[in-house]
Design a protein around this nucleic acid. Structure first.
Length: 501
RNA sequence: GGGCCGUUAGCUCAGCUGGUAGAGCAGGGGACUCUUAAUCCCAAGGUCAUAGGUUCGAUCCCUAUACGGCCCA
């Protein structure tokens, strides 16, 4: 019975194989053996075994005793010999079980093991005549009984729904999936090392925000009972990180989970991982240098190369990355001047011509940005820093002196997709107050993505924020790029799905 | 939100023009002391996603729903 008194249905598996496994479990317990051991002493992970005994020739053996443990992933019964394959976090190894070494009783218990069981083995090392490095055990121990059958050994698990819902099976059955996630973790570790080597501090800032800010996106809303107030899951950590600049932390970064209450697609998950970096006394150009070095470093450290293939397209990350302004790129693609020199009506006409849907409230900056995204973005395959973004769509970026409708900002485009966004930070509190007011006007006009008016952030700025550059990088997208993954779900361990049917 | 596709044994997949379903792997029984997608023999395993409809008869045709995938917004 559950807490509320309702019956909880017994969801234990009922298929024949699971029933057989359950019966084995019960039989073990009845015979006094614990099928879920407390622990096991491992002397050699598989990789260490290979390293230490890899030079053994075919047919050679040694008397060194080793202990290792892993999941049973193959079992080949030869009558008076049984070959097991154990898989641990570092690789696979064969266990060559022989009746004459183990004795009748121990040998028959090995016969009862099922694929998927966690097993420990202790014995000597041998390379078989066929050349397979193996352990010949004197003792084989069931460490944890598996009650459900694994997917098929050869084809693995193919059903996408099961792969995403039950990632643990995907990780067991599909080694290439495991490799993608290993690569992900290495990329994140590489980024941390890179930033720490440059004197950045990794910090943690709130995920529950009283005012959604730092980006333009719909937030998730939640409620704090004790405070009886609405809170928003952060859409970006930007405004808190910049408060730290005010506080005197001059180089900070956060590898953060952020949340946006928007659709799910091959490139969007409601929660996603971003890197945000802030560095005092530099500007957008400093962020260009940092971003380029950080990504090149990650590719080199994790992949060993800066030449990558993404979905059939070869991309060279190794060269100096192109820089071009939004207006020059868009003008080139539209084959005419697309700039603030054009009238609002002319820009609207261009949008109509290129089938870009527009809203009446949009100014020139938003129209130019939309034209850029429609005409240019997907054509930029090689890494390109697109600079000089309109003020209208950049409420936290510093204006370019003397060209007040533009900000000193870039977005990094690779394979036609946005990877990073950075700017010379707006540190002028008077200007920032005006920008927030414009956001409030947009919100009042029905823009659900507009930023909130963050008075405390303004107060912080009024104490003085040092000149700074800041950058945000989509970690999931970077991992997709470096692992040649078509969908963000393939780089998220547990992607968002509807509840099971 | 719209369009297209998918859902068959634990897993991977077949299934013809509508006549109540097959294989391989896994599992069960048996043989085998150097196998490695082991091999060989035997037997078993299905609410064809769910709910309706058409039909003498539906895994198959139609409708709706659920979940998933892809494309578009």
């Amino acid at each position: 019975m559950g807490d509320d008194g309702r019956e909880i249905p017994d969801q234990a598996p009922r298929d024949d194989e699971s029933l057989v496994r359950r019966a084995k479990l019960d039989a073990l317990r009845a015979a006094g053996e614990e099928p879920y051991k407390l622990n096991f002493d491992v002397s050699h992970p598989v990789s260490a075994l290979t390293a230490e005994f890899g030079s053994l020739g075919a047919g050679e053996d040694v008397t060194d005793v080793v202990s290792l443990a892993g999941r049973l992933v193959a079992k080949r019964d030869q009558g008076r010999a049984i070959f097991l394959v154990l898989r641990d976090g570092t690789g696979d190894v064969q266990i060559f079980c022989r009746l004459n070494v183990l004795g009748e009783e121990a040998f028959s218990r090995i016969g009862e093991l099922d694929l998927g069981d966690w097993v420990g083995a202790t014995g000597t090392v041998l390379r078989t005549r066929r050349g397979e490095l193996s352990v010949v055990p004197t003792e084989v121990t069931l460490l944890s009984k598996s009650l459900r059958p694994l997917p098929e050994k050869y084809h693995g698990l193919a059903d996408t729904e099961t792969r995403y819902r039950q990632r643990y099976i995907d990780l067991i059955a599909n080694p290439e999936v495991r490799d993608v996630f290993l690569t992900r973790f290495r990329i994140v570790a590489s980024i941390r090392r890179f930033l720490e080597s440059r004197g950045f501090l990794e910090v943690e800032t709130p995920m529950l925000h009283p005012i959604p800010g730092g980006a333009t996106a719909r937030p998730f809303v939640t409620h704090h009972n004790a405070l009886d107030m609405e809170l928003y899951l952060r859409i970006a950590p930007e405004l808190y990180l910049k408060r730290l600049l005010v506080g005197g932390f001059e180089r900070v970064f956060e590898i953060n989970r952020s949340f946006r209450n928007e659709g799910i697609s091959v490139r969007h998950n409601p929660e996603f991982t971003m890197l945000e970096v802030y560095q005092a006394f530099t500007d957008m150009r400093g962020m260009i240098e940092l971003t380029e070095a950080l990504i090149k470093n990650a590719a080199t450290e994790v992949l060993g190369t800066t030449t990558i293939t993404y979905q059939g397209e070869v991309v060279d990350l190794g060269r100096n990355w192109r820089r071009a302004t939004m207006i020059e790129l868009t003008s080139e693609a539209a084959d005419q001047d697309v700039s603030f020199a054009r009238s609002l009506d002319e820009l609207r006409g261009l949008c109509a011509k290129h089938e870009v849907p527009v809203e009446a409230s949009w100014g020139k900056g938003k129209l130019i940005t939309e034209l850029f995204e429609k005409l240019v973005e997907r054509t930029l395959i090689e890494p390109t820093f697109v600079t000089e973004y309109p003020l209208e769509t950049s409420p936290l970026a510093r204006k370019i002196t003397g060209r007040e409708e533009l900000t000193d900002r870039f977005e990094l485009i690779i394979t036609g997709r946005e990877f990073a966004n950075a700017f010379s930070e707006l540190v002028d509190p008077v200007d920032q107050r005006e920008r927030f007011a414009a956001q409030m006007a947009a919100k009042a006009g029905g823009d659900v993505e507009a930023m909130g008016y963050d008075e405390d952030y303004l107060r912080a700025m009024e104490y003085g924020m040092p000149p700074a550059g800041g950058m945000g990088l989509g970690i999931d997208r970077l991992v997709m790029l470096l692992t040649d993954s078509a969908s963000i779900r393939d780089v998220l361990l547990f992607p968002a799905l509807r509840p099971e049917a």
